[in-house]
Design a protein around this nucleic acid. Structure first.
Lengths: 217, 217
DNA sequence: TTATAGCACGAACGTGCGTTCTAAGTCAAC
DNA sequence: GTTGACTTAGAACGCACGTTCGTGCTATAA
């Protein structure tokens, strides 16, 4: 979100409103904003609120006490809607989406707190079918949240890879060895890694950012 | 939620507040409530709001315009705030909370969609320390969401049990065998169950409703 | 140098705000 | 019939509310 047009005072007002809303369950008054932002005049607060409204960060209801609400542009959403695209099985590649699927995507989605998925974008979710991922400590029915087209894949990232020579999808931590081979390390430390001599057969299809398991029923 | 003690007028007030909040982003004033609920006197609205507060449906801030918020008892939330109480290790019992810890509880919490945890109440979360839970396909660092004091524990539930004879906490699916023994079945189907001859050493400390794994960093 | 825009500020205003007081109605129990 | 608890209702109050007005400062562009 572009807050470049805002003065420092206006940014401070926005942040205060957000925090006040979270703590109190209702927006602050003009005088409460003034007091918190060291503005002694209600007309200065009024002027800045009107500016924030013109810039699209909030909406005001006229002549109403506490009559303001933040727009999505102002808020840093605490929850993310992640499309649930289907299932992941060992015997087929991951159905990685391309383009802006979040707009035209399926009805089914899972909403998760930003805390859990972090700043990652381009997210999608798949539900695991079968027992083939238990070496990643991922059970049948688990929901795997992945980032499509990760810009960088680092050693140790948990990734979904499609092995073209085996015709198999697997979830493992990926490492590039110094001798050029690729090591795919199960998350379960009691299990042995796979070494791939020919890195070209390894297709990284997504980076796993979270796993969700529901055990209630 | 039990609204049995409420008069029809009080239920109407609650529903109006909920709807007004959703539509406007801020709570109504006493006069707005009166107008909508056909109450001509602000002191009657005040009386009823005090009654709703005593019954635990809302909280009022005194002498503040629009100074009220609905409690979870009143709201049907799409997200649940679950206190994150600390860590779960194999060598100690689960720190199960009692009483109304949600009021005096820790700052740290995880918020999850109701979809994931289901209709379960009395929830708390712990973060796993160590590799001792990998037979449940639960990794170090995973967040385990549990229900305290489950009223009923059914065969097949994934539970945290403290085994007093071994001095050990474990997460397994629990079954009562027809011969009186308790079977603790690892979620990982390649691993063998434990049979407990003396069921009294098995202390069920919580029922697992979800597991959250973050793999991004 | 002048004009303009953005931002700051105090003062004042009419109206809205929640609280309090007093009086009265309803209903169940005795 | 009486009593007490619960609920209803109007009136009044002091203070908070957002808006408006007039003024001033600073920076930038012409």
């Amino acid at each position: 979100m572009d807050e470049a047009n805002l003065s420092a005072r206006q940014k401070a007002i926005l942040r205060f409103i957000e925090q006040f809303l979270e703590e109190n369950g209702y927006p602050p008054t003009i005088r409460e904003i003034g007091k918190a932002c060291k503005i002694s005049s209600t007309s200065v607060v009024n002027y800045n609120l009107n500016k924030l409204e013109r810039e699209g960060f909030l909406i005001r209801d006229r002549e109403v006490s506490r009559g303001l609400r933040l727009t999505p542009r102002a808020r840093q959403d605490r929850f993310v809607r992640i499309p649930l695209l289907g299932r992941i099985v060992a015997s087929a590649p991951v159905p990685v989406p391309d383009g802006d699927f979040a707009i035209l995507g399926p009805d089914e989605a899972v909403e998760l707190p930003r805390d859990i998925v972090g700043p990652n974008e381009d997210l999608f979710a798949l539900q695991v079918s079968g027992q083939s991922m238990i070496d990643a400590m991922i059970d049948d029915g688990d929901i795997v949240v992945m980032q499509a087209h990760p810009a960088d894949v680092h050693n140790g990232d948990l990734v979904a890879v499609w092995l073209t020579d085996r015709g198999e999808t697997t979830l493992k931590r990926i490492y590039r060895e110094s001798d050029g081979r690729v090591r795919l390390q199960p998350a379960n430390p009691t299990m042995s890694p796979i070494y791939i001599d020919d890195p070209s057969v390894v297709r990284v299809q997504g980076r796993v950012v979270a796993v969700i398991r529901q055990t209630w029923s």
